[in-house]
Simulated assay, not measured.
Amino acid sequence: MTPMHKTIVFDLDGTLVDSLPDIIASFQYSLMSLGLPVPTDTEVRVLIGHPLEEMFEHFAPGQDVTRLCSIYREHYPRNFVNRSRPFPGVLELLRTLRERGYKLAIATTKRTDMARRFVEALGMMPMVDHVQGTDGFPHKPAPDVIHRALGALGGAKGLWMVGDTTADMQAGRAAGLRTYGVTWGNHDAALLATATPDEIQPDLGQLLQHLPPLPRA
């Protein structure tokens, strides 16, 4: 029997990529374009990681959420690498983990098509084995997106879920993975601690200490 691939699952925004400024700008643009009140950066940031529809419903109750989402999805891909960049050391980390024999998956609240376009635009697609978005099934903290990502890799064995929000930590635990919370994204250490991750770190460097090279087949 062929052994299952050992896989590390990563959230995308706020974990691998510092993408909040471009997300917030497109969100605010969508509201502004319909003449609706525009929340501050801080107000939007609190809800990042939730489905786009829920975010617009929160800030524009009773408005045409479908239209707002459409505007966002037109504007964001044209502007999603204006300021977005991988966090320091991320590309080197991904390369090292691949060299050590691990499979790497991304599991994000973004829709799959948008997530893949974003990862490709940043030049990161060759460094991961699968990009899985949330398309019509429960979003984090439900574990569905993680299960889909692992299933796309042939039922791979997930080892760690790496993310920047309590929802990432809850989803990882629900999927049976160890959880690693990084504080350079959307949730600080105190908030992440409420989800009791296995690790809370200011960056991804400590992750390598848990993942030595795998034996060669």
Rank of each mutant, 00 (worst) to 15 (best):
L94D: 01
Q170E: 15
L36V: 07
G123W: 05
K110N: 04
D168A: 09
Y76G: 05
L122K: 09
S33A: 13
V119S: 03
A60R: 09
T40P: 13
D144G: 02
S26T: 02
G14C: 09
G176N: 07
F10A: 00
R83L: 10
A217I: 12
V131F: 00
D135R: 02
G154L: 10
T166I: 11
D13N: 09
E53I: 05
G158K: 12
L211K: 13
P3A: 08
E54P: 00
V38C: 10
G101E: 05
G176I: 02
K157M: 14
P86W: 02
P141G: 03
L192D: 07
I71F: 06
L34Y: 02
S70Q: 15
Q28K: 04
S26A: 05
A121G: 10
I71A: 05
R78F: 06
L153F: 01
G62P: 07
R67T: 08
G101W: 06
M161V: 12
P61G: 02
S33L: 07
Y76F: 15
G151L: 09
I146C: 00
G62F: 04
T179S: 03
Q201K: 09
P39K: 06
T165V: 08
D13S: 09
V44H: 11
G136Y: 07
P51V: 04
L20N: 12
T183W: 03
L204G: 14
T40E: 12
H210L: 08
D41P: 09
I8K: 00
D203H: 12
E99S: 11
A171T: 02
A189F: 13
T196R: 15
V90A: 01
K140G: 01
Q209M: 03
N82L: 14
R95L: 01
Q209L: 12
V182D: 02
Q28H: 00
R73D: 13
G205F: 10
Q201R: 13
W184R: 13
A60M: 11
V119Q: 03
G14S: 10
F59V: 01
M169K: 14
W160N: 00
M169Y: 13
R45W: 06
G101M: 10
D41T: 14
T194M: 06
H50E: 14
H5F: 12
F27H: 08
S70A: 15
D113Q: 10
V17C: 03
L97M: 10
A217C: 06
I23W: 01
